[in-house]
């Protein structure tokens, strides 16, 4: 699909190394910088061609910021983003523009991600025109083909977004993302705003398109049930850091990191007879303006011990292909009595 120079074999399509994005906080009379929001603080991952990597975590953990940083919707603070082994985070806007056609995005809210004053044809044709890929009647054909791909009627191209439902609009957004012949599509909570039945349709559409076009997906979501259905690998984020990364089966069957376990135990199971132990985390997510020392999860971790408060764990292999950022080699199944009492007292 890519027509640029062929990268060395085995090079991942997208590589993110030590990505940091800090948003400055302005305050005071003169609007000077008074602090930073450490939205993303050192995240690394890679995605192979044709693979789906899911980025999961609760809201505010920085997963959307990673997506937008990869899209270069804003400059990153530190780290590297490589597309086919080539750095793209330090390119100028002009140098980056031709590469933009390879990375496209589908946003969460299908109502604000389409310009209400443009017809579908203009929405979908915009990237095609920008990259000079087609014009005239060829352009109409291409838009029609894209509408076929997302299973919308061809004559929809002469209508406005408000004439469509949420699920249909998300199909339009997917068509736009496919339009420039992109390799990587970042789905930023792409199905979170949809009804359950529509959600399933869109997820199925995405995996069909992936098979058909060899797409690579970076799927950003908080919905683990959906993620389990369509992903190859999962990366779990907490407060701007990656806490665990593993392939789907391993992560869902034998999660390592205590946070991942808590997250998984919160996924509703559509069977009322299933009884299971739920891990209830205490307190709120700490502020990313002033993140906790050591392990960022130590304020809420049921298995916390002294080292967690001072020493920040790095992602490391903990067996079975899992990368986890936890000091414990084996996380026990039950919470130690001392910690439980401390949590109750708190």
């Amino acid at each position: 699909m890519s027509n640029s120079q062929t990268p060395a074999p085995g090079t991942p399509l997208l590589e993110v190394k030590g990505l940091k994005k800090h948003f400055p906080i302005h305050g005071g009379i003169l609007g000077g910088k008074t602090g930073n929001v450490f939205a993303v603080d050192g995240v690394s991952f890679d995605i192979k061609r044709g693979e789906t990597l899911s980025l999961v975590g609760e809201s505010g953990c920085g997963k959307s910021t990673v997506g937008k940083a990869v899209l270069r919707l804003y400059p990153i603070t530190d780290g590297e983003v490589l597309l086919d082994g080539r750095r793209i985070d330090n390119l100028s806007a002009g140098e980056l523009r031709p590469l933009r056609k390879r990375i496209q995005v589908v946003f969460q809210d299908p109502f604000s991600s389409l310009n209400p004053r443009q017809k579908l044809r203009d929405i979908i044709a915009e990237p095609i025109i920008n990259f000079g890929l087609a014009s005239g009647s060829e352009l109409d054909d291409r838009v029609g083909d894209l509408l076929d791909k997302v299973r919308l009627p061809r004559d929809a191209m002469y209508r406005y977004p408000h004439e469509f439902s949420g699920g249909q609009r998300q199909r339009i957004a997917i068509a736009r993302a496919l339009a420039p012949g992109s390799d990587l599509i970042i789905c930023d909570e792409a199905v979170s705003a949809l009804d359950v039945s529509v959600k399933a349709q869109i997820v199925n559409l995405l995996s069909d398109l992936q098979d058909e076009l060899g797409l690579t997906l970076l799927f950003i979501s908080h919905d683990l049930a959906i993620v389990e259905h369509l992903t190859h690998r999962v990366a779990v984020m907490y407060l701007g850091k990656m806490v665990e990364m593993a392939d789907r089966k391993t992560l869902f069957s034998t999660p390592h990191h205590p946070y991942t376990r808590a997250l998984l135990s919160a996924v509703p199971v559509p069977d009322p007879t299933v009884k299971r132990q739920r891990i209830i985390l205490r307190g709120d997510v700490p502020s990313p303006i002033n993140p906790p020392s050591g392990c960022r999860f130590h304020t809420r971790c049921p298995f916390v011990f002294d080292r967690c408060k001072v020493d920040e764990p790095q992602l490391r292999d903990v067996g079975m292909g899992r990368m986890s950022a936890c000091h414990l080699d084996v996380v026990p199944d039950t919470v130690p009595e001392a910690n439980r009492q401390a949590a109750v007292a708190a």
């Binding site: 919707l73 809210d109 604000s112 991600s113």
Partner: peptide
């Protein structure tokens, strides 16, 4: 707005973003 961000991602130049979106 996400549609403006999508347009940036789709390679639309700033003057066109102002005019069209």
């Amino acid at each position: 707005q996400p549609y403006v961000e999508a347009a940036i991602a789709a390679g639309t130049r700033t003057p066109m973003i102002i005019i069209k979106h």
